[in-house]
C-alpha cells in the first residue's frame, strides 16, 4: 500500500535527509515540506526530524512550534493522522502541546551521542506496530536536551494509559547502562492517548540498513507502511 510521507524542514533541521531516505527505503513516497508552507500536500504520515531548529534559541523547539506548517501538523494530528517527532521533533511536539511534558538539559550536562538499548513498550502506534511488545533494540541517541520531565500526575497518567512507547533498558549494566540523560521513568519516547502522535529521542532513521551498522530502526518505517494503518479521513484536503 502506498504511503505519502512529509518530512518537515525547519531552519536548523539536520536529520531531514536521513528521515526522507528511510521513508523511501520502505517504499513510501516521501517529500520535504518547508516550515513556512501551510499544507502537508496530502501526506499520510508526517515526520518532524532531528536537528537544532532555530538554533535551539530560548528552548529547544520553542520557536519552531509557531512555524506556519505547525497549524497543518496539528490539524493532521487532530484528524488521527500519524506524526512522528524524532529528537528535536519530539521537543517541538512537546512545546506545541501535541505531547505532554518537556525535554530538559541532560543530567550531567554532556551532549550524549551513542547507541543505547531501549525497550519497545507500546506497539499500538503507526510507528511501532512492526515490533513485538517488549522488543529490545539498540538505537543511537544524539542530544543535549533529552531529559523527559513531567509533573507527577502526568507521568502517572502516561504509565497508567500505556503511553510510554520507548524506555531506556536497564539490565546487565555493562550491556545496558540504562538512562543516558536522567529522564523521568527512563522514558525515551511517548505517544498521545490515541497513539497516532509519537515522540522519541533515539534516531531510528540512522539504523535502517546493515550498511549503516544495523537495521533495528527500520520497524519505525515499515510499521506505517503496513496495511491497516489508519489514514486520516480529512487529511488530504488541500488548502
Amino acid at each position: 500500500m502506498s504511503r505519502r510521507v512529509a518530512v518537515v524542514r525547519f531552519p536548523g533541521s539536520n536529520c531531514d535527509a536521513d528521515a526522507l531516505r528511510a521513508a523511501q527505503l520502505v517504499g513510501a513516497e516521501a517529500d520535504y515540506v518547508w516550515h513556512r508552507d501551510t499544507s502537508l500536500g496530502g501526506a499520510d504520515v508526517v515526520i518532524l526530524p532531528g536537528g537544532f531548529s532555530y538554533g535551539d534559541y530560548l528552548r529547544s523547539g520553542a520557536i519552531a512550534r509557531f512555524s506556519p506548517i505547525m497549524a497543518a501538523v496539528r490539524s493532521h494530528a487532530d484528524a488521527g493522522g500519524a506524526v512522528l517527532g524524532i529528537c528535536n521533533g519530539f521537543q517541538i511536539l512537546c512545546e506545541a502541546h501535541l505531547l505532554p511534558g518537556a525535554l530538559m538539559r541532560n543530567a550531567g550536562l554532556s551532549f550524549v551521542s551513542r547507541p543505547v538499548p531501549v525497550t519497545v513498550e507500546r506497539t499500538t502506534t503507526p510507528f511501532t506496530s512492526a515490533y513485538a511488545p517488549g522488543a529490545r533494540l539498540t538505537l543511537p541517541v544524539a542530544h543535549g536536551e533529552g531529559r523527559f520531565a513531567a509533573t507527577v500526575d502526568v507521568a502517572r497518567m502516561l504509565e497508567a494509559e500505556g503511553r510510554v512507547v520507548l524506555r531506556y533498558a536497564k539490565g546487565d549494566p555493562a550491556a545496558e547502562p540504562g538512562n543516558p540523560n536522567g529522564s523521568a521513568h527512563d522514558i525515551a519516547g511517548i505517544s498521545n492517548a490515541e497513539g497516532n502522535v509519537v515522540g522519541i529521542m533515539p534516531h531510528p532513521e540512522r539504523v535502517v540498513s546493515p550498511l549503516l551498522g544495523s537495521d533495528e530502526g527500520l520497524g519505525f518505517f515499515t510499521s506505517f507502511m503496513a496495511a491497516g494503518t489508519a489514514t486520516p479521513p480529512m487529511e488530504s484536503m488541500s488548502r
Partner: peptide, 8 residues
C-alpha cells in the same frame, strides 16, 4: 505562550 515553559 513563549518566554517560559509552564511545565518546567
Amino acid at each position: 505562550r513563549l518566554l517560559a515553559n509552564p511545565v518546567t
